[in-house]
């Protein structure tokens, strides 16, 4: 029983890590640019295909696959911004609508290149089982947890301790006033897109070997990311981190009870409930508002 519970717990942490990496990008977009990007999960999907291509066709070692995917997404996102979002700055619902189009375009482009068949991404760690007490977990899953911790620490240091991070927080808090202080918002927006790309690229490269890669895998993840962001509070980095693990654990334990089909419904009901009762999320602070 204990083994079962702890395996559910570890599984929840792993899923939560993935949710967090994806949701951090979404919450940064909202916190800094005030946009809803419904194509974020599809960028994850493109990243997963990058990992698939790098691993299967280029035969790169796994660590190189991770780096290539992160770099690829970090380059892809600013380009997408330039093509898709740049002209719609300041519009409330424009970027949201456009991101729906972007999500359709990315899905069908990837389907055109790689077909709709599910693909597997190779990884040397997939079959390495590690024993923790009585539970054995694939090393691939376990890799996710320390990597995520490192990334979160790095993001935290970046936002709190560097000059650019200060600029990001300044624009999140007061775009106009920060402009008076000599911060170029477009530069900061670029930084946010690169950051979101790096985070989602890491998520894609580490999770892709465990999932089957399909062109439509992104939609579900977008929904999950928004559940996290709503529970954590829109634009709130700390809230997203907490909420991602909560959602991961809920998902894992609900599946453990044999209700896997209902996991999404429960999480979505949570989203709607939060929106009705506490739209500011668990932690009612936006990025940059707290010192």
């Amino acid at each position: 029983m204990l083994a079962f519970l702890s395996s559910l717990f570890i599984n929840g942490l792993v899923t939560g890590s993935m949710f967090m990496l994806v949701a951090l990008g979404v919450t940064l977009f909202y916190g800094v640019l005030r946009i809803i990007n419904l194509a974020h999960g599809d960028v994850f999907m493109v990243g997963a295909y990058m990992a698939f291509y790098a691993g299967t066709y280029l035969h790169l070692p796994y660590w190189a696959v991770v780096i290539v995917t992160m770099m690829g997404c970090a380059v892809l996102y600013p380009i997408l911004d330039l093509l898709v979002f740049r002209r719609l700055r300041g519009s409330e619902l424009g970027p949201l609508i456009t991101s729906v189009g972007l999500s359709m375009a990315l899905e069908s482009l990837v389907q055109g290149i790689f077909t709709a068949n599910a693909q597997a991404v190779p990884s040397p760690y997939l079959n390495n089982l590690v024993n923790i007490g009585t539970v054995s977990v694939p090393l691939q899953s376990l890799l996710m947890i320390p990597l995520t911790l490192v990334v979160v620490a790095a993001l935290y240091v970046f936002l709190r301790r560097t000059r650019t991070g200060l600029m990001v927080r300044a624009v999140a808090m007061e775009p106009r006033v920060s402009q008076l202080m000599g911060v170029r918002p477009e530069y900061v927006y670029g930084v946010v897109f690169v950051l979101a790309g790096l985070l989602v690229g890491l998520a894609a490269a580490t999770m892709a070997p465990e999932l089957y890669v399909t062109p439509t895998m992104g939609v579900e993840l977008t929904v999950d990311a928004y559940i996290v962001v709503v529970i954590g509070g829109f634009g709130n980095v700390e809230g997203a981190i907490v909420a991602a693990f909560i959602l991961g654990l809920i998902n894992s334990f609900v599946s453990g009870l044999g209700l896997a089909d209902w996991a999404t419904t429960i999480a979505l009901a949570l989203l709607v409930g939060f929106m009705m009762v506490r739209p500011s999320g668990l932690v009612a602070e936006r990025l940059g508002v707290r010192q």
């Binding site: 909202y30 809803i36 419904l38 409330e92 619902l93 949201l96 929904v223 928004y226 559940i227 709503v230 829109f234 089909d261 209902w262 999404t264 419904t265 979505l268 009901a269 989203l271 709607v272 929106m275 009705m276 739209p279």
Partner: peptide
């Protein structure tokens, strides 16, 4: 009625969630 006070981005997200809930149900 559930979304009486919700607007803008938030309403888009809530209705998206409700749409997916219906499909799941």
């Amino acid at each position: 009625l559930a979304a009486t006070r919700i607007r803008g981005h938030y309403l888009a997200i809530v209705t998206l969630a409700i749409g997916v809930i219906v499909e799941e149900l």
